[in-house]
Nucleic acid binder design. Structure first.
Lengths: 190, 190
DNA sequence: CCCCTTTTTTAACATATGTAAAATATTGTT
DNA sequence: AACAATATTTTACATATGTTAAAAAAGGGG
């Protein structure tokens, strides 16, 4: 098993037979990348799904010329351009590493082939997609009911120390607010 | 096949073998319910997943004593308390029919049993969960970047005639605004 | 058909957050 | 170390949307 830590994380979502686990291990590769490296460029079709073992990254897109962070992933979290992977259309989102990072990656096509061959990998996919749905549902409630200050506090709770690791402008756009508001929030001026 | 229209919708997401389709048909039941009927009560563990053949319903919850609509489903759409189904914990959301409706339902436990028995039903589950994720992701962008007026126009586009079928107070809470603002929007006063 | 309840609209006012521009701090490179 | 580029904070002002309350309209049951 070349990528044990990664395979263990998968198995936490849903157990895999030894053969299925070995097959996942086989399609996975591991790399170090520097801060600023793009795992996915804008308008490119995403082919890989990634897992950040150590480090951090963000999914972002351009909205009226503004750089908007859609999502962060830090140590031991998944990151991917899911829509592009699934639809095989050029991605209107990009993935950039925000620190030097260690990344596990596999081709989504390889994963789908393994879904056909191994029922338990298909199940893993179903369960992880459902988790992702439940997660994003919680995010909607955060956006709807928390003030910008509360959303910032939540983010710091879920990603401790994030504001020392990732530029505040990215955090501001993730939170759906502005650098100016975030600065007010951090200074304690309400 | 007792529930052909429903089974056909499933197959649009991912094809099923005849045996798998028959098994889905077997666990499904069909009912007429009046407006106001609850498919799921608050704090109850959800056991069924539903598909509204004709009519409409909403998922809602209480936030600081306010009734907030989380989601609408109309003719030929799915509705369920996904978090409670998946976690088997009491639901902090309820499902209410907003019109007299025709509803297809199946026990989620039965579905999960069929996922084990039929690989293609498991795949259907994975693909539908992924679709649901992509849908809800679009909703986040709507919430983040559209004004209340634009969100209302989007809703009317996606659910034509909805404001003649569902109380405006429910639409307002779905849109993340107030009855007062929605009324201003509808009257054209900006 | 009328009364009572609920829903929707209108009005007046409050506020969180946005925008723009300038000042300050931080970071990276030679 | 010094400069340039970038990031962050501060200030002043604008505005969309919320809150509260009351009036008007719509709907349901006897």
């Amino acid at each position: 098993m070349k990528h044990l830590p990664f395979i263990q994380v998968l198995q936490q979502a849903s157990p895999l037979s030894p053969e299925a686990a070995a097959a996942m291990d086989e399609i996975t590769c591991f790399n170090h990348y520097p801060k600023g490296h793009h795992l996915l460029n804008l308008w490119q079709v995403d082919r890989y799904f990634h897992f950040i073992g150590k480090g951090s990254g963000r999914v972002y897109y351009l909205k009226d010329g503004m750089d908007i962070t859609d999502y962060f992933a830090m140590d031991m979290q998944f990151i991917g351009g899911v829509e592009s992977l699934f639809t095989k259309q050029p991605s209107h989102k990009a993935i950039e590493l925000t620190e030097d990072s260690e990344v596990y990656s596999f081709l989504f096509d390889d994963f789908e082939k393994l879904c056909v061959r191994y029922h338990d990998i298909e199940r893993l996919g179903r369960i992880m997609a459902t988790y992702a749905f439940l997660e994003i549902q919680k995010r909607i409630e955060g956006i709807r009911f928390l003030s910008a200050a509360e959303r910032y506090q939540e983010l710091e709770k879920n990603y401790p120390g994030i504001s020392n690791r990732i530029a505040l402008k990215h955090i501001a756009s993730y939170l759906g607010t502005t650098q100016v508001s975030l600065s007010r929030i951090r200074s304690g001026i309400q």
